[in-house]
Design a protein around this nucleic acid. Structure first.
Lengths: 347, 347
DNA sequence: GGAAGTGCCTGTAACGTTTCAGAAAATATG
DNA sequence: CATATTTTCTGAAACGTTACAGGCACTTCC
């Protein structure tokens, strides 16, 4: 049954032993040739390569995984795939992994913490050499424990402040937020509201810091009434924006802490008949694809998401190769992209 | 070096042999307990489970892969991740795989044929049990060869007509297109243009068939001048729409063969100052997330993309279990979603 | 001429499972 | 009670690699 099975599975390729026999050398020699090791005579190498050329052979990565302890697989966890924010990071990570001849084992966590933990368990089951965790919801303690346990991983876009020793890649939240607010200030806005993500998240707190800093630097007193906490989703954005627009003294500009919220703001404005940008300026954060196709196109802070994925893989690979990593915490620059959702403050 | 390495890699978990020793049984028995086999006495099972509970154990999937010939990994290739069309399929597939306790090895092909072929090569290297190919660009011959070679795979959204024996999951292109056109006809439109994808693709040809059929059924003579070939991208949509709008006798409605094209059409209309839906009705295809956030929200034909991913996994899993599959070619229903980009024909 | 050093190669023991053939124990049958 | 049957379990052989320890044939050195 088993051998039939294997045949049926199409695993009827040459094994290293068969190659060795055909080439008249030992399996060890074949292995060294295949892996490009130096200590092989030209004659032996040629014999092996000829057999490989003629019969075709590629090493069984599962077997290599068992024997050598590295599988060439990297686990990647992400809350969801279907969201351009994550999809772009995945794309970047995929590209970088491909260049390293590594493969990505993708796991959606679906924001379920239990699932995330058990996924990590599973990733560690010898299947993967390491992992890239995108916006993981594990507690800092859990992540630190994983690190201490010896598992190699890198965090892209950490949710909360983490143990120093865990490598992370994130964006320059604070300076991006400052830039956004400075842009609005330059347009003459003074009542600038903010719709944030959940409090406690790094992204929220850091962007808030940038927002407040920029206001303060311009001599504008930041008012807590203009800061509304939300959840990074469009519906949340609608709700938060309505509460702001319905105030007796509505803001003239809203800085939404991500593009989804900003899109919600635009929908809310439409509901209230408020024109963008004439009566209300809107700025988002992320610069996902959606920002470019809404009407009017959204002014937003660009995060280099694909680069974030690539950089995270980079850090991970170096870690796997036991290279000393000097920069454990990489912060990537953000940049304001001005489109048409912002305009001069009209009083 | 090697053993140190392994330790450093955090692979210092119990092996099946250690569990066996602790439980006072043989490794074979532990294996049977772990895999829920029936022929184990209650006493032995309990002993094993107790050790597992107390010390923690999870099987090394790499070793299992080698020994049992199945790795629990399924390869998934997709042109790009960062596109909601593909991302949603991936999400669905991921969900279904998770339920089967299988993992997804994700490979972006980036529309590069060579890359695709070499990826498949690699996937077959014993790493995966089978594969799910999303919109693969291999030739029908290559795919048939792969099938004959014994590799198990399922195609989601085939690009071209394939060998009968290759299992596929696709959407009801033709009936969805008919429904879209009937909707426009009912609104009084007669000059209904189509912006298609590349000729030869199943999606294009089938939707075209539905488009022409619906027109003919309504006694409207389909005119080839109103059919413009494009490429499923927004820029292509802009260009195609401009060529239609700039005609002396522009259409009153445009049926774009996917949402990206439709978004391009909307951008083109804005460029020409044509109001949607008052002066021009636009229908898309896919119902990706973008369709719901553009202004006005896009009327479009919904493809059950997540379901497509789930169904494809379903077919694959059954194939892997050597089950006889009665329906090798599944077609999923599509459904028109009416939003605000379509309105009565104004003459 | 013997010792020491290279360069190339082989044999073989891992790696951690699954599974097969068959032994041992328990149960049923005549 | 002996024999057959079933149930439960074990030992050991795979699975396809990698890598270690060591061997053989040379060269080089004193």
């Amino acid at each position: 049954m088993s051998s039939t099975d294997r045949l049926e599975n199409g695993r009827n390729r040459l094994t290293i032993r068969q190659v060795a026999d055909l080439a008249g050398v030992s399996t060890a020699t074949v292995s060294r040739v295949i892996n490009g090791r130096a200590d092989v005579s030209e004659r032996a190498r040629e014999a092996v390569l000829r057999v490989v050329r003629e019969h075709g052979y590629s090493t069984n990565r599962t077997a290599r995984g068992l024997s050598a302890g590295r599988t060439g697989l990297v686990g990647v966890t992400t809350p969801v795939v279907h969201h351009s924010y994550f999809a772009v990071i995945l794309d970047g990570a995929g590209e970088a992994l491909y260049e390293q001849d590594m493969r990505m084992v993708l796991c959606r966590t679906h924001h379920e913490h239990d699932r995330e933990v058990s996924l990590l368990e599973r990733l560690m089951q010898g299947t993967t050499d390491g992992a890239l965790l995108i916006l993981p919801e594990e507690s800092p303690d859990e992540l630190a424990a994983l690190h201490d346990h010896g598992y190699r991983f890198v965090i892209a876009d950490p949710l909360r402040p983490l143990d120093e020793r865990v490598p992370t890649v994130s964006a320059a939240h604070s300076s991006g937020a400052s830039e956004a607010v400075e842009h609005l200030l330059a347009l003459g806005h003074r009542r600038i509201a903010a719709i944030t993500g959940p409090r406690g998240w790094i992204a929220t707190e850091e962007r808030l810091r940038g927002y407040r800093g920029a206001l303060a630097a311009a001599g504008v007193m930041p008012s807590d009434e203009l800061v509304v906490e939300s959840d990074f989703h469009a519906e949340g954005g609608v709700e938060a924006a309505l509460s702001l627009l319905d105030r007796p003294d509505p803001p003239t500009a809203i800085f939404a802490f991500n593009d989804m919220l900003a899109i919600g703001v635009m929908q809310a404005a439409r509901l209230r008949g408020v024109r963008i940008p004439e009566e209300l300026s809107v700025v988002g954060f992320d610069d996902t694809f959606e920002a470019s196709i809404v009407t009017p196109p959204l002014t937003t802070v660009r995060q280099p998401l694909a680069e974030m994925g690539r950089m995270a893989v980079n850090l991970l690979v170096r870690q796997l190769q036991n290279q000393r990593i000097e920069a454990l915490h990489v912060q990537l620059e953000t940049k304001l992209v001005v489109r048409e959702s912002t305009g001069p403050a009209a009083r």
